[in-house]
Design a protein around this nucleic acid. Structure first.
Length: 862
RNA sequence: GCCCUGGUGGUGGAAUUGGUAGACACGCAGGACUUAAAAUCCUGUGAUCAUUGCGGUCGUGCGGGUUCAAGUCCCGCCCGGGGUACCA
């Protein structure tokens, strides 16, 4: 009987499911291992062969860890809130929950066919009220916390209130967006609303007027990571800058910790680089320049304070608050005209138009603090209002953008680096020697920066400063299909909904569109007011509830915690479960989430850690990015190009084990690689050959109890060793060739011995679980092969008595010579030089040198 | 521009620490079995020169270098993929 994958795979999938074979149970006597996949958004298109690639790899690792005796947590769920379901709802009027549920069922069916060892009892769906209750609860923790810069951690806002009462806000060093400073007396004098507005500016979840990415097509705001090249990442719609009052999360407070934390993570350098570039730390100085004829000062941020003697003008962002104040009457028309023009340029135009240098002179001057020289103040949109102080000290000889600006407007370019040619461009390297700079003359950059920092501090005009490119994350979406934000308003002051009223469930609406006056869809609900005693009440009968919903990345920022204790009605997960299972030992998913999900995921973990809910402060110790599978034509696999390969079809033709093996065999997991339809024949053939080892020519199961020979044991232990090593270093493709080599060798040896085949079955079972369950069962085992123990390789079986040495002359391999393994250098050298094959290559010469690496090579230098 | 990645036969890839480049597959060619096909098995398969056989030369994107020895290390380029971009 040939191997019949169709009935066999179904048989074992049913067995696993009815016996709950992969159910994970908290068991403190066993070491745990948590393998997590990035959960999918269940789209209507279903899975193509690219999607399971990562799931197969993580499944192999999970099974491997089980065989090693770990208690493995390997869950799966759905990132179920999202825009496509909502767009579909707008078009068809169907509730997004309905289409989402349909898609989930389709996904589940596809996933089940591949033979994954998920513990489905722990499944989460982010759009379920029982799940998003806790997403809302985490939002409340964020709302109730502020970030203390001194301790570098989140703390309860209630503590802030006390400090304000006692000493105002001057002594507190916290992350905030409050531009007031006040004394205790003033604080006590503020109204309730004023106090609440100030506290809001300190909260980690805060409401603030800010410039946001507004997408008119989608009718919602987007976070920075959701915008690519001035267009929305999803849909590619135009995005414009707009000032709006929005919920935001103060992730910037965690910038330094998010950066520092990378160091101890076993993530790829590529990914860590993407995150650290996105965080964008830069170290420098903030320096004040006195304005000529005004009380105000212009503050600039610079990473090169040592170039301060090269400053020949200042540039403010057009939106800078001092612009209107300092512009002289004579320049007023020009400046105002420029501001209007630049404000009408969209982000996109600005990006596309980098070469075009624009700006205007304000007519004002500042004083260079050391030379008292008068320096003209310009405005220009190459200076961004949102970064640093929104103003720069322009050093055209040291910064190319400043140089371009100076060159364009005919401003002075004083040289400050020895030997530089200012007519050519700026000298940006940090190697030069400083000139024309008073007390800094003759110094190198590093030393000069130290000295100038000391000087400006001494003079009270500047200080050391660190800036980050990363911005706070806009958290509200003018959309329906997301978690409601658990906030209601009393006289414009946001209040948290009572915890007992969670989950704050999405209300019914008649349409999923904004209202006619542009309010979000939740405004349409007839039941969207709040009464602190009763909970949700009819619209018009209570306080206004928040109308925006949370962004798509909310549910995914903490889902890994819920898997640890998925049904807990009282907590996000029990302390015990969090303590035992956390953090994730191995996380697998696409690199496209580097600046979105993976940052928020780390951020929420750190907050929950600070608030003592978690003992760890990084969610995933080790992370692997799987590559993309391209279509056979090298393009992206997409419905649009009609080149999608559906795993269901592959499984119908070749079986799930073949699919799994083939996807791994395509190449290293982290690489992009094209799908290859023909190649699957190779792994199918392998599975048939494997089957045949256990069966005689008539197809009857036939196993010998005879002891194994040396060469059989060698084949077996080679593959045991290779599989374990390969899997530890996540090289899933090379294991497959090792399996093939073993099966080919054992086939040649006509080996059907239990002593060999039993361990071999276990070794292959992680990659090909169905066929091996069947063989395992035929070998007489009543338990699943996943409960077996990983065979340990024995060095003794791999030891050779002889070694075939490659013998090289001048580095070129000329012939092989078999010598006893225990020959020492001397003996090897003698054997090689006296060997008759050497004569031809020696040509009578005496070797200059003979290199012998025992067990490896011989090289003779002539 | 800057920061990451990658570049090896016709194809996917292997070579883990500098030590026989091309494992394992696909494809292709030839053969066995068969009335035929499928399945299975065997042989060959980097290029090139030579050929009766032995064999020689070249070869890991390009150009240099280090080394007894380089796909692997160093320097300078080219090309593909990703990230980021007036971030001071």
């Amino acid at each position: 009987m040939e191997y019949d994958f169709r009935t066999n795979e179904k048989k074992w999938q049913n067995y696993w499911s009815t016996n709950h074979t992969f159910k994970a149970v908290l068991d403190k006597t066993k070491p745990k291992y948590y393998v997590l996949d990035m959960f999918p958004y269940p789209s209507g298109a279903g899975l193509h062969v690219g999607h399971p690639l990562g799931y197969i790899a993580s499944d192999i690792l999970s099974r491997f860890k089980r065989l090693q005796g770990f208690n493995v947590l390997h869950p799966m769920g759905y990132d179920a809130f999202g825009l496509p379901a909502e767009q579909y709802a707008i078009q068809t009027g169907q509730h997004p929950a309905k289409t989402t549920e349909e898609n989930i069922l389709m996904y589940r069916e596809q996933l089940d066919k591949i033979g994954f060892s998920f513990d489905w009892k722990r499944q989460v769906k982010t759009s379920e009220p029982s799940y998003y209750k806790w997403t809302q609860w985490i939002f409340m923790q964020l709302f109730n916390s502020y970030f203390c810069n001194d301790e570098q951690k989140a703390k309860p806002v209630s503590g802030l209130n006390k400090v304000f009462n006692n000493e105002g806000n001057s002594s507190i060093n916290a992350a905030h967006s409050c531009n007031l400073s006040f004394t205790a007396e003033q604080w006590k004098g503020f109204s309730h609303k004023e106090q609440q507005d100030i506290l809001l500016d300190y909260r980690l979840a805060y409401l603030a007027e800010s410039v946001v990415n507004w997408c008119p097509e989608m009718g919602t705001v987007l976070a920075n990571d959701e915008v690519k090249d001035g267009k929305s990442e999803r849909g590619g719609y135009e995005v414009v800058q707009k000032k709006m009052k929005q919920w935001s999360l103060r992730i910037t407070a965690y910038a330094q910790r998010l950066l520092d934390g990378l160091e101890n993570l076993d993530w790829s350098d590529a990914l860590k680089d993407i995150q650290s570039n996105w965080i964008g730390r830069s170290e420098g100085a903030q320096i004040k320049f006195d304005l000529d004829g005004h009380d105000e000062v212009i503050e600039v941020f610079t990473t090169r304070p040592d170039t301060i003697f090269g400053v020949s003008f200042m540039v403010l962002a057009p939106e800078h608050e001092l612009v209107s104040k300092i512009t002289t009457a004579g320049q007023k028309v020009e400046v105002e005209k420029y501001i209007v023009v630049s404000s009408h340029r969209s982000e996109r135009e600005r990006l596309a138009d980098v070469k075009n240098i624009t700006g205007a002179f304000t007519g004002a001057y500042v004083k260079q603090p050391f030379s008292d020289e008068k320096i003209p103040v310009w405005i220009g949109d190459y200076v961004l209002a949102g970064y640093g102080t929104g103003a720069v000290m322009a050093v055209p000889s040291g910064d190319q953008r400043d140089w371009d600006f100076a060159n364009h407007f005919g401003l002075a370019i004083p040289p400050i680096i020895k030997g530089q040619d200012v007519s050519e461009g700026a000298e940006v390297s940090k190697d030069g020697e400083i000139i024309n700079s008073d007390f800094l003359n003759g110094m190198k950059v590093k030393k000069a920066i130290k000295l100038i920092l000391f000087k400006v501090k001494e003079m009270g005009i500047g200080e050391h400063r660190i800036n980050y490119k990363m911005r706070d994350a806009v958290f509200g979406r003018q959309r329906y299909w997301g978690e409601p934000i658990p906030v209601y308003y009393v006289d414009g002051v946001p209040n948290l909904v009572k915890e007992e009223h969670l989950p704050l469930a999405l209300p019914k609406v008649d349409k999923y569109l904004p209202t006619s006056d542009g309010e979000p869809p939740l405004k349409r609900s007839e039941n969207w007011n709040y009464n602190p005693e009763k909970g949700i009440v009819k619209s018009g009968e209570g306080y206004e509830l928040e109308l925006t919903t949370m962004p798509g990345w909310s549910g995914s920022s903490w889902y890994y915690l819920r898997y640890m204790d998925a049904d807990n009605p009282n907590e996000i997960a029990s302390k015990e479960a969090l303590e035992y299972w956390g953090p994730v030992d191995f996380y697998l998913g696409g690199a496209e989430h580097a600046t979105g999900h993976l940052l928020y995921f780390r951020f929420w973990t750190k907050v929950l850690h600070d608030l003592d809910f978690l003992s760890f402060d990084e969610p995933a110790k080790k992370l692997l990015n799987q590559g993309m599978i391209q279509a056979e034509d090298g393009q992206k696999m997409s419905k649009r190009y009609g080149n999608v390969v559906n795993p269901d079809d592959v499984i119908a033709d070749h079986g799930a084990d073949a699919l799994r093996l083939h996807e791994m065999f395509l190449g290293p997991i982290e690489m992009h690689k094209p799908w290859n339809t023909q190649g699957i024949e190779g792994v199918s053939k392998f599975l048939r050959k494997l089957w045949r080892l256990y069966h005689d020519v008539d197809g009857d199961f036939n196993i010998s109890e005879e002891p194994a020979t040396k060469s059989e044991l060698k084949s077996l232990h080679k593959v045991i060793k290779k599989f374990a090593e390969d899997t530890e270093r996540l090289s899933f493709n090379t294991s497959v060739s090792a399996f093939m080599v073993a099966v080919n060798e054992l086939g040649d040896l006509k080996c059907n011995k239990r002593e060999i085949l039993e361990p071999l079955t276990i070794v292959v079972s992680c990659h090909a679980p169905h066929i091996t369950e069947e063989l395992w069962n035929k070998l007489g085992h009543s338990e699943s092969i996943s409960k077996a123990e990983l065979p340990i390789y024995n060095e003794a079986y791999l030891k050779e008595d002889t070694k075939k040495y490659p013998v090289s002359f001048n580095g070129k391999m000329r012939f092989m010579l078999e010598l006893p393994m225990d020959f020492n250098k001397q003996q090897i050298e003698e054997a090689v030089t006296t060997n008759e094959q050497s004569e031809r290559w020696l040509e009578g010469k005496t070797p200059k040198k003979i290199i012998v690496v025992p067990g490896k090579i011989v090289n003779i230098v002539l």
